[in-house]
Amino acid sequence: MTIKTVYKRPKLLKERLFHYCPGCGHSVIHKLLCEVIDEMNLKERIVCIPPPGCSVFAYNYLDIDMAESAHGRGAAVATGIKRVSPETIVFTYQGDGDLSAIGTAETIHAANREEKITAIFVNNAVYGMTGGQMAPTTMIGQKTTTSPYGREVNKEGYPLKMSEILSVVEGTVYIERTAVNSPKNIKKTKKAISKAFQVQIDNLGFSMVEILSPCPTNWKMSPIESWHWVDKEMVKEFPLGVIKDRIKVKKC
């Protein structure tokens, strides 16, 4: 009887413990990135721009080249690297406080300039590392440390939908919103990431994958409750699916 390996720890994932909380979506996304980079054979030519936030130590886990950026400036740093060395595949790994709050300008203008970069946008509806403050993507009525009675529309406004905003910018080619809260959604996320990288390899333009990710600690839930909460609450506000796909148009 031969024993076949069905699933092995990805080769590009370093042998060390994640510092993330139990049930965090970051480590699932790290795992997917490693699998995609390994399958597409991009290890030698890929550069990741990790953000400040919980995933600031991404270089401890992913065995690829990294260049840390200041808060929100991921797209700007990625632009520089991509312009200096166009052969490199550059992707930013940004959270919602990073990409949709302090880095809104950089992201929109990088997309508008049709920079050939990829953004992995991890949306967990709060500022995770600093203790769960309200982010622009926080749900209406969601309790956070800076909105203890729940987010109110007339005071704090509506959740910001970055994928929809970027979909009307001319320079974006591929935008998809996925989640990492079930085996099916995790597989879809993996496909979306590899499609976004392929857009960059084909030199078509800006691509982004928005990933709805659970944050059990700051949502004050158990890991499995937080995975369900993504489906119950977040998906209503941030519908999943391909938001923009201009790959065929650009290839013609």
Binding site: M1, I3, K4, T5, V6, Y7, K8, R9, P10, L13, L17, F18, Y20, P22, G23, C24, G25, S27, V28, K31, S182, P183, I186, K187
Partner: peptide
Amino acid sequence: NACGICAIVCPEAAIEVYRE
């Protein structure tokens, strides 16, 4: 039956799956 779902969802990549 080595479906691999546990390994896909495991956030720590702590599970490896084998089929006999």
